[in-house]
Amino acid sequence: MIYNFIQMNGYGIFVWSSFIITFLVCGIFYYKTRKSLKKYEKEFAKEIEALSIEQKKTVLENSKVASKVLSSFNKSI
């Protein structure tokens, strides 16, 4: 039965290759997107950390995004 499922009456190679290509590409694309997102988050958090205490305070008070990224970054460490 499993053999039949893989074989698909001779169309197996076409069906499986299309599905594998599709989901492989989607997987790689997801991984790359995630990687660049993490990279930007990390760089952003580091830049905020590098600021002087007063500057940091004003940034975190004014920007929700900055405080969110920073807190999630600190959590991940």
Partner: peptide
Amino acid sequence: GDSVRIMYV
């Protein structure tokens, strides 16, 4: 036959 399944992607 089964090659119709390619349509689903």
